[in-house]
Structures are given as C-alpha cells and as structure tokens.
C-alpha cells in the first residue's frame, strides 16, 4: 500500500531524513522506534504533507499513486490520517463542527452524500464512547482546554470517525497514564483491519504491549538501522538503544525512566 524509497527531507536546510526505505502492506501494523531527534516525527509529518518540511529526494507512493505531489488535504481525502503528537487548539470551533466538516469533506471526495446533523451526532456519540470521551466534549472547542490525555483520545476518535487507509500515530502514547493508555490502545486495535495500514511512531516499548505490531523498525539519525518483528521492541527495552550503537541524548534517557 505504502512504499517509501530513499526519502530525504529537511527543515530550514537541515537534513533530518537521510534515505528512508519502507514498505507497508494493507493490514499490517508497523512501529517506528528510535531516540529523540532521530526523525520519527519528521517522517510522520512529511507523509502527511506538512509544508514546513522539504522533501529533497526520494519517492513515496500510496496504492501506486505519487503521494508527494498531492496537497495535504488531498492526501487526507485519499485516506492518510495523522494523529498528532501535540494537537493544536482551535478556539470557538466545536469539535462536532470540526469533525463533521472533515467527515463530509472526505465523503464529498468519495462522491457520497453529506451526513446530516442528526446522523452525524449519532455516529459521533457512539465513537466518543469507544474512546471514553464524554459526548459533552463534542460541543467544546477543538482541543480547547483538553488535558493531554483527552487530546490523544480525541485524535483516536477522529481516526475512528474517518476510517483512513493509512493511519499514522505520532507518539500517541506519550503523556498517558495506564488507564488512558489502555483506552487509546483499544481504540487503535479497533482500527486494525485487512484494508488498513497503521504506522506507529513511539519512543517506548510500553505501547507495543497493548498494540502488538507486525514489524518494528529502529530509526537513528534519519535512517532505519534495524528492522524486525515485535521481539525487536522487547530487546530494545531490555538493552537500550546503545545496544545498536545509537547514542541517546540525555533528555530522552532521563524521560525514559
């Protein structure tokens, strides 16, 4: 489904991704691990089309179409979803209005009729329960005054609403307590499907206890340095990134404890 070949990307002339190669098939769950600054989040942002990053060489195709030539919103309509690490607030725009605009933009793209308010409300209520968000959240501004955990659950809720082809989850586990982690993981597991690929970016192994990936890749200094099965994550947890000869910066090391 997704094929990344020799992808290089930079921000403000600083090269972050230095030749990423990765193939993901429909139905698979891949985890990208690596220390802070290795380029994990950049990869997620580049795939979603953030203009702040410049792709300098390489190619990305999704279902044999060139992904990189498409605008952010076109990628989204084709089924690329990014769950943000730090979801931004949009004051005064209700979650409900935001999600409905989004869902209808995708439906419109697929040639389907728009959902009316009542239909949408019913769906949104059901899905909000799935991620343990009080339906009252729907009326509040997008991420406005949400706690860190609520923001992450809100992101997963949006993924469930939009049913993407490729879901990219950027550090969806960070800042979550054990209960919230369980809720978010259940949500992600509910997303697993034959026709959907999931790419999880994470610093820690603990998320992978709940969402068992098919493949694990280790990213360091903008390149994938090792790939393997779920056991690779466990080994990393035990032996640390130093085992692979990767230097971990201090902030990452201390926050890991």
């Amino acid at each position: 489904m997704l094929s990344i070949k020799n992808l290089h990307a930079s921000v403000e002339d600083k090269e972050i991704l230095k030749g990423i190669n990765l193939d993901i098939k429909a139905g698979e769950v891949h985890a990208i691990m690596g220390p802070n600054g290795s380029g994990k989040s950049t990869l997620a942002q580049v795939l979603a089309g953030n203009d702040a990053f410049e792709v300098t060489s390489g190619s990305v195709t999704m279902n044999d179409e060139d992904l990189l030539e498409k605008a952010t919103e076109e990628r989204a309509r084709d089924g690329v979803f990014l769950a943000f690490q730090y979801p931004v607030e949009i004051p005064g725009v209700s979650n409900l209005q935001f999600m409905r605009t989004s869902v209808n933009a995708l439906r419109h793209h697929r040639g389907e009729s728009e959902m009316n308010a009542a239909e949408f409300m019913k769906l949104a209520r059901e899905v909000s329960k799935q991620v343990d968000l009080d339906p009252a959240f729907l009326k509040r501004g997008v991420n406005e005054g949400f706690s860190g955990g609520e923001k992450k659950r809100n992101e997963i809720m949006q993924a469930l609403m939009l049913q993407p082809k490729l879901a990219i989850l950027d550090e969806t586990d960070s800042g979550l307590d054990i209960d919230a982690l369980k809720v978010v993981s259940d949500g992600v597991n509910a997303l697993r499907a034959e026709d959907r690929a999931i790419l999880m970016v994470t610093h820690y192994q603990r998320l992978l206890d709940h969402i068992v990936p098919d493949f694990v890749h280790v990213l360091a200094e903008g390149k994938i340095v090792k790939s393997g099965g779920p056991e690779l994550a466990l080994e990393l947890e035990e032996r640390g990134y130093a085992w692979l000869g990767i230097k971990e910066d201090e902030t990452a090391a201390s926050s890991a404890n």
Binding site: Q97, T101, A105
Partner: peptide
C-alpha cells in the same frame, strides 16, 4: 497559525474553508 491550518488540512478541509472556520470560531461570542 500554521499548526491550525495543518490540522484542518490534514483532516481533508481545504484552506479557505479552514480559515473561515477558524475565523467564525473566533467570532462566536
């Protein structure tokens, strides 16, 4: 902000629509 715009566009919402939605939210009161 660019972040707000990116969030909207990542959810399939085009730019003009996104700006208008953000502005309408700003004026809600």
């Amino acid at each position: 902000s660019d972040e707000q715009m990116f969030l909207c566009r990542q959810r399939g919402i085009d730019m003009e629509r996104a700006v208008s939605m953000i502005v309408n939210g700003f004026c809600k009161d």
